Simulated assay, not measured.
Amino acid sequence: EPGAGSDLASLATRAERDGDHWIVNGQKVWTSGAHKARWAILVARTDPDVPKHRGLTYFLCDMTDPGVEVRPLRQITGEAEFNEVFLTDVRIPDSLRLGEVGEGWRVATATLMNERVAIGSGSDPGRESGMIGVVARTWRQRPELRTPELHARLMRLWVEAEVARQTGRRLRQKLAAGQPGPEGSAAKLTFARLAQQLSGLELELLGAEGLRYGDWTMKRPEVVEFTGKDAGYRYLRAKGNSIEGGTSEILRNIIAERVLGLPPEPRTDKDVPWKDLPR
């Protein structure tokens, strides 16, 4: 949410019970594909009198319902795949609640862990898939662009991309046996870093040619193709990889605390009712 930043649990969108329905008012931001979606995940505050993590409930929201307004957010690429969503007196039947009232944080956490696995290692098309394949093809097709320094960087990133691919295979095998753990955060963090470093290397490899940008007209894409279009698009779009699905800073905190067992950051608001928190 605009006022919550990376602190999902501090969200302010309210859902108030009205018989067999909930009346929802609030605003969401960076909603992927909201202009195309029929259904959306909606986490709302149903109890402001308890600490922030315990007062949330998870709903499914029909995007065609009255009171749901979607506005485009134009990105640096010229596209608007993300959106702002405004909810004004939206009536959601209680039958579209997922999980118990007040259990929204638990359900949302499971959703986010699955999302991070999907972003970081959702499939395995094979060796040199994704951005490493794009850069490797350019390297092979354009020998006149090569330098020893660029070659050394490409080889290091090629090895890291292959390690990430193989690690993703192990993670998907673990996921098949149960819920994903914090390992998905590491996969997503690695994906974002590699995408940004590889797209930057591609621009350096292409030199002045890499500065060309095909089309910057406002578009509402049907799907997002990370490796499609030209090098300039890939470089700009990769900047969002370290934000979507959980910022890299938050993912590092999760890995530090839940994987490495390091002391958590002090949280003075953990036991304070949400309504008493400064905003």
Rank of each mutant, 00 (worst) to 15 (best):
L277T: 11
G246R: 03
A161I: 11
P148M: 03
P266I: 00
Q27A: 01
G3E: 14
E265V: 04
G184F: 04
F82A: 09
I76Y: 06
E84Q: 04
L96Y: 07
V135T: 07
R267P: 00
G207D: 10
Q27I: 02
A110D: 09
G228E: 05
K36D: 08
G207H: 06
A136V: 04
E162I: 05
D65W: 12
G214C: 06
S10A: 14
G184E: 08
M155G: 08
T88H: 14
A208H: 04
N114W: 00
Q141R: 15
W158P: 10
T77K: 12
K219A: 12
G33F: 07
R220V: 14
L42G: 02
L11E: 02
R71E: 05
T217I: 13
G102W: 00
L145F: 15
L211P: 11
R17G: 00
G26W: 08
T217H: 15
L203P: 06
A108S: 11
Y58T: 07
K188L: 14
L201A: 05
A118C: 01
D7P: 00
G210P: 10
Y235M: 12
P125C: 08
P263N: 14
G228Y: 00
L56S: 04
L56G: 07
A37N: 10
R71Y: 03
V135P: 04
A195H: 02
G181K: 04
L198T: 05
G99E: 08
H53P: 02
L8F: 07
G130E: 12
G245S: 06
A34V: 12
K229W: 10
L171E: 12
